Simulated scan of single mutants.
Amino acid sequence: MSKKRLLAIIVWFVTLAATGAIADVTHTTLDAANRGAAEQRDAEEAVTRRLLDQLRNIKIPLSQAVVIAEHLHDGSRTADISLEISGPPVYRVRTVKNERIWENVIDANTGSVTEKEISSSLRELDHEDQGNIIALKSVELELSDAVRIAEKAAEGSALAGGLKKQDGKTNFVVVVASGDRLKEVMLEPPKVERQGSARH
């Protein structure tokens, strides 16, 4: 899962804030740059507070949204999921089976699918997303298991998660709301054993 997709829950704010900060900082004094950075931090904290408030009120946890999405296509696995709060809270979920990828939007309060499903083939994805989805075939752990482990480790509720391949390593990355903070938990899943390797 690409970093931009994993952090979709806050990317709409960060993009706007960063664009403004770059324009201001380029030709201004250090004081203005510091003021811009402080304003950006304050705005990010406000978004985090809003996100945490929304999370406390939703009825469908992320792990249940994973189950709902996987039941839409028997035998599919969840590649990534994120909570979005730009309107009514929804989960955006991508599931995969063989070479097909489905993207669904699931209402975080009712569990119903709220938008038309988007279906595509693996070849239509960008190189990074292709790599992450192909890597999913090589791991035994399901995203739902990774979410459960991350929530226990960080003592909170998951907002987003997916598989990320980076520097030759494949990890599940799960964003968890814990208290008044967001934590990113990385888990290295066990690899699927190849049939010949067990004989040595």
Rank of each mutant, 00 (worst) to 15 (best):
V176E: 13
H71W: 09
I134A: 11
T48I: 00
I149A: 10
A65F: 02
A135F: 11
G161N: 01
R50I: 09
E44P: 02
A154Q: 07
G87C: 11
H127C: 02
R148H: 03
R194D: 02
A65H: 05
R199A: 02
G75E: 05
A23E: 10
G161V: 01
A65L: 11
E124L: 06
G75C: 10
T15S: 12
A32H: 13
K4I: 00
E128Q: 11
I22Q: 10
E140R: 12
V139Y: 02
R92Q: 14
Q166W: 00
R41P: 01
R77V: 14
S121C: 03
A65M: 09
H71M: 13
W12I: 04
K164F: 07
S120H: 01
S86H: 12
I134V: 15
M1L: 10
I133P: 07
G75P: 07
A146T: 04
S119V: 07
N104V: 15
D129E: 14
L72Q: 15
S63Y: 13
A160V: 02
E70Y: 11
E103A: 14
K97Y: 03
L122T: 00
T29S: 15
D80S: 05
V175L: 12
F172H: 02
V14T: 11
E188R: 13
V14M: 03
A79Y: 09
L143A: 09
H71I: 06
E151K: 06
D74N: 07
S112K: 15
R50N: 06
E184N: 10
I106L: 13
V192D: 00
A8K: 14
I60M: 12
I58S: 08
A17K: 11
K152C: 04
P88Y: 01
L125V: 01
A135W: 04
N98W: 07
A38W: 06
V47I: 01
T78A: 05
S197L: 04
L187K: 00
K116P: 01
S119I: 08
G196R: 14
S63T: 15
T110R: 10
E155K: 06
Y91A: 13
N34F: 12
